[in-house]
Design a protein around this nucleic acid. Structure first.
Lengths: 357, 357
DNA sequence: TTTAGCACTCCTTTAATTCGAGTGCTAAAT
DNA sequence: ATTTAGCACTCGAATTAAAGGAGTGCTAAA
């Protein structure tokens, strides 16, 4: 379909593209194979169904649509969805009224970070009638203001830390070997003086390189402190990984037409039981801020083969610290999903800034 | 069916009871209405299907079984399940081999309380092919060994506490008004000296009565300390309430025959979205240690009308501190469920004792 | 290049029929 | 007085047949 010939051809391609859009649009909302007649009507009546039929034939040859059986309408293939998303993605814009409503609902009585996460997830799932997923902001990208270590038991340390955003967080860290109190104080001092105002990921990286540079001839003591500090930082970064995803709205799947195909829904639920793949997916694209759309087979993860996942990053002080998204069957209202996810990722970014952690 | 007449009659009732048992048994495993022939066969062949038919007729009149339609087999009613559970519940005993296998799987590489919760839930859902639910042990019933308060910000206090089981827990508590450091120390002192080795619920109760007894003429200072202490203890007890339930195995519903009836499954999933009812249900019977079985309509909660919930308490140092359970369609293998839940509640109680929190 | 027209395909719906598992009742057997 | 064999009857489930119709592909005219 991509083609860079004469203006004449361009016009034709343009029309073909519009036909595809209409097929996707119609199919997404009705879940019924789309006929040439339907498309002709939607295109404003100045084109006949026969012409549309021809175009659809071409689209089928090119792999953008397919027929469930002869003498049935067309449904989009994965490539079809992909094409559709690629061309619409950039100029979607939530209608102002809708955006305002979302913002109003979003901000209604919300105070803690936990509530932010839950509200986001809830709104995604309710708006899109699919499961909403929200990553917790990754601790790696937070900036350390101050850290305190308290020995609570042998091999066990309580870490209290204050981030630049004044969030107070605390972790219980279990160490491989015991550390005396005096040593602990040295570690605290070391980190507070050398690494104040750094992101945790950077602290970890710097500690690692320090350790490598330190030749054996250097003081053992310093190396020991750095090593222990790294162990603590690492286990903090690691800690949240496990529950770093929150979701909601599994029940919505049930309402969808796809439900007829039990196997898909079942796969989806299984998916949620074994969320590792999902976590990996989202982590992988964490650095990227914009919207990403994964359609069906494009997903490397087997479970997700028949689903689409749309995600978008949210930011804190200009850095992407997490992602939100929606997951549902391949036949999904991409327009609406893109609009909503985009809008909510803006809202969450705004909210994070003003929230009292 | 209950009847206290001659020995002759007893024998007859006994047989009727066995017929009902077989109906439940057969229906539970096949999900197909049970015919008189099937029951006759299962009873060992020394009874004819015609006789069974008569008995089933009586059972139907008495409301223990029903027919989906004339000329179909019988299925148990809720009363039928209830009767069945009541008579079998007391002499269920997990086969030794099965129990050993469970114990082995249970204990495999488990260290933290979180892992205990997750493992329990996982095993319930995997064994019973339904959703497993596990309450976190309620902090109220833990015994305080030592408490430490750290002021981290205005109106915000970090509470570190060590329980009698050597568990270290920590909470961030937000207060209504600020407390100075000196005052904080007094509070710490007050609790540590007056309430060491008490359960949190008792500490709260005692503080409350102290406050009531304290007449206005008493020293204001003491009252203030008690009040602040109470606020802190209360918010700690309250804190965990929200997430005090963990579950797993939603996907198993899908596999079951009941799945044909989408509305039930859907209701179940919705149920899990709005878990408040479930939490309330479990909290209500928390003090009771033994197994409780809720069948279908007996549940006050609408969502649960078509489900059964089986729960059992688990203990720590002789006190019931939480409950575990399974939730699924009314047609559930009650035998297996009772056995498994009972066994796992023993296992979790044992494990809690030895776990390194 | 577009479109009207038409034959053809094949899914869906409906109706009619058959099949059989299971019951309830009656009369004989124990 | 129970139990049981026997049999007519019921009613859902499965099978088949037919009709209906939405949609296509192709051809020939506009």
């Amino acid at each position: 379909m991509y083609n860079y010939n004469t203006g004449r051809r361009d016009k034709k391609e343009e029309r073909k593209s519009r036909v595809l859009e209409h097929v996707v649009h119609a199919y997404v909302s009705t879940a019924v194979p789309v006929s040439s007649k339907t498309v002709a009507a939607r295109m404003g009546g100045n084109i006949s169904s026969a012409t549309v039929r021809n175009i659809m034939g071409e689209l089928e040859e090119e792999g953008y649509v397919e027929q469930p059986h002869t003498s049935a309408g067309r449904i989009p293939t994965h490539s079809g969805y992909r094409y559709y998303v690629d061309i619409t993605k950039d100029h979607i814009r939530l209608r102002k009224k809708e955006a305002e409503r979302l913002a109003r609902e979003y901000n209604w009585r919300i105070r803690t970070i936990k509530e932010v996460i839950e509200r986001t997830s809830f709104l995604i799932s309710r708006e899109l009638h699919n499961a909403g997923i929200v990553m917790w902001p990754s601790i790696e990208d937070f900036y350390l203001k101050h850290m305190e270590l308290v020995k609570v038991r042998t091999e066990t340390v309580l870490v209290i830390l204050v981030t630049m955003t004044n969030a107070v967080k605390n972790y219980i860290v279990r160490l491989e070997r015991d550390i005396e109190k005096a040593q602990l104080e040295k570690i605290t001092n070391y980190i507070n003086t050398n690494h104040e105002h750094s992101a945790f990921s950077r602290i970890a990286a710097e500690l690692r390189s320090t350790l490598e540079d330190t030749s054996d001839s250097d003081r053992q003591d310093a190396a020991g402190i750095a090593r222990s500090a790294l162990a603590i930082i690492d286990s903090i970064i690691h800690e949240k990984m496990e529950n770093e995803i929150y979701w909601e709205g599994l029940d919505y799947f049930m309402g969808e037409a796809e439900f007829q195909d039990v196997s898909i829904t079942r796969r989806l639920l299984q998916m949620f039981s074994e969320r590792d793949d999902l976590i990996r997916l989202m982590r992988k694209e964490l650095p990227y801020r914009g919207i990403k759309v994964h359609i069906g087979e494009e997903n490397s993860c087997k479970m997700l083969k028949e689903c689409s996942v749309i995600t978008s990053g949210y930011t804190l002080h200009g850095r992407t610290v997490g992602r939100i998204g929606v997951i549902g069957p391949t036949r999904m209202d991409y327009d609406h999903a893109l609009r909503t996810v985009s809008c909510l990722s803006d809202l969450i970014s705004l909210k994070l800034r003003e929230i009292d952690w």
